[in-house]
């Protein structure tokens, strides 16, 4: 049988629900006849309640909306920077560490030949794919895909704005039909008359 003092050490675990069944039962039994422990446990519960309430944070939705594409963009930037930079820093490291200027001259010739080789190399692979699997898109391709999705969403919004302006609810059916037809099209490839179907001038429309 644990004493009141021993059980006091378990108050945090009790209210955080971290006790095993045996100790949980002991605690509950003890709480039935120990006002001091009841008070202490109540105070800890209050701590949890207050800190939980104060710790709730609401994050505006737009902040996280584009996080995925920001991650891919960062990967594109870092991939295109890291490879040539690390190569050149290695060359300069050799020059610094040896202090031998013959080697330095040889390195310079090598460096001059590097741009030609690297242009050929990087044009063949627009970014360095961080993963080896052929099926995984490069971050660059992923960014392009997100852009296409954004174009499509912008197009949908634009069409909706044109058709539903002035509460022209009668045209909802026509709008839905056109939206269906427009699936898979990109903003740039859409003919103007479909964006301005009621003869609205481009600058007076959307």
């Amino acid at each position: 049988m644990k004493t009141c003092k021993q059980l006091k050490e378990l108050h945090t675990e009790y209210i955080c629900d971290l006790l095993d069944d045996e100790r949980m039962n002991l605690m509950e039994e003890h709480l039935q006849h120990c006002p001091s422990c009841v008070h202490a446990v109540g105070a800890l519960k209050n701590v949890l309640c207050l800190t939980g309430e104060a710790g709730t944070i609401s994050i505006p939705e737009p902040i996280l909306n584009n996080l995925e594409v920001k991650v891919y963009k960062r990967l594109v930037i870092e991939s295109s920077q890291s490879a040539p930079v690390s190569f050149l820093s290695r060359i300069f490291g050799v020059i610094r560490s040896t202090g031998n200027w013959r080697i330095a001259a040889a390195c310079c010739i090598l460096i001059l030949s590097v741009p030609v080789a690297s242009i050929v190399y990087y044009q063949s692979r627009s970014v360095v794919a961080p993963l080896s699997s052929n099926d995984i898109q490069s971050p660059h391709e992923r960014v392009e895909q997100y852009k296409r999705q954004q174009y499509q969403a912008d197009l949908d919004n634009a069409l909706e704005t044109v058709y539903l302006r002035d509460d022209d609810w009668a045209s909802v059916g026509a709008f839905q039909k056109m939206k269906e037809q427009g699936k898979g099209h990109l903003w740039e490839s859409f003919p103007d008359e479909r964006l301005h179907p009621r003869g609205l001038a481009p600058n007076g429309g959307i």
């Binding site: 902040i63 996080l67 920001k70 991650v71 993963l131």
Partner: peptide
């Protein structure tokens, strides 16, 4: 936000 992006960039690189 900056650190969250960094977390996922690190994860992407290490996930393989």
């Amino acid at each position: 936000e900056e650190l969250t992006i960094e977390v996922f960039v690190k994860v992407y690189r290490a996930l393989e």
